[in-house]
């Protein structure tokens, strides 16, 4: 899987590269409009992370180019500008997703994987790990081929964890992903704890070969056992 990160902020670019490397993707970078344009002309990418504000040009121009070539579908726009205009324009131009800075790495990973899955879809849409199968279309969980009922939030949480296997998922990232962007997110934390507890219980009862570890009170990590 080859990903191009077009981001002019060096530090942020490095963070993205570090994080995506952990997921065993092949990463290339571009820090300005010209480099990005050249690379897009020369190579094929499975996913493109695109910052709108670039030195020497606007990311939306690149997106227009990609649209003409029919390659806009695997673009995730990353922008500090949470303006509706840009968002609408970007999505209109065929971008797959729009991520506003600052974002959590877990969210980025989840979105990148969503784009990759969508473009590689071979009929089935499942996340699999050890003895566990999460069917995203049917919205069911099978552990050792037995159905384990989950409520909507539990399903969403598990899906998020599975997209971020072996990675830190902070409570904030989880809350934002599962319950949306609330002004005072911290109110959700008790509830997250409660939901995770229930989820753990269900996984344990069904003898799932994975575990949700707590990480220093800030978040969780899903690991296969």
């Amino acid at each position: 899987m080859k990903i191009l990160v077009i981001e002019d902020e060096k530090e942020l670019q490095q963070n993205i590269v570090d994080s995506l490397t952990k997921e065993h993707f092949v990463i290339e970078t571009a820090s300005d409009f010209r480099t990005a344009s050249e690379k897009l002309d020369l190579y094929q990418y499975d996913c493109i992370l695109l910052d709108i504000m670039l030195p020497q040009g606007n990311g939306l121009t690149l997106l227009e180019e990609l649209k003409k070539q029919g390659k806009a579908g695997n673009v995730i726009i990353i922008s500090a500008k949470d303006s509706l205009d840009d968002k609408l324009k970007g999505l209109e131009l065929g971008a797959d997703d729009y991520l506003t800075k600052p974002f959590h790495l877990a969210e980025l990973t989840a979105r990148v994987k969503a784009v990759l899955r969508r473009n590689l879809l071979d009929g089935k849409n499942t996340l699999e790990i050890s003895n566990l199968i999460l069917d995203l279309n049917e919205r069911t969980l099978l552990i050792n081929n037995e159905n384990v009922p989950l409520n909507r939030k539990e399903f969403a949480i598990l899906k998020y964890f599975l997209l971020n296997q072996n990675r830190l998922v902070t409570k904030t990232a989880l809350a934002e992903h599962v319950w949306g962007d609330h002004i005072d997110q911290s109110d959700n934390f008790d509830f997250i704890y409660y939901q995770i507890k229930n989820l753990r219980k269900k996984l344990q009862l069904a003898a799932a070969a994975l575990e949700i570890e707590a990480i220093y009170g800030i978040g969780y990590k899903l690991v296969a056992t």
Partner: peptide, 17 residues
Amino acid sequence: LQTPLAIMTNKLELLLE
């Protein structure tokens, strides 16, 4: 402030891993 905050958040996330 958004970009520096984004860098901080992500760096800390990476550091914790």
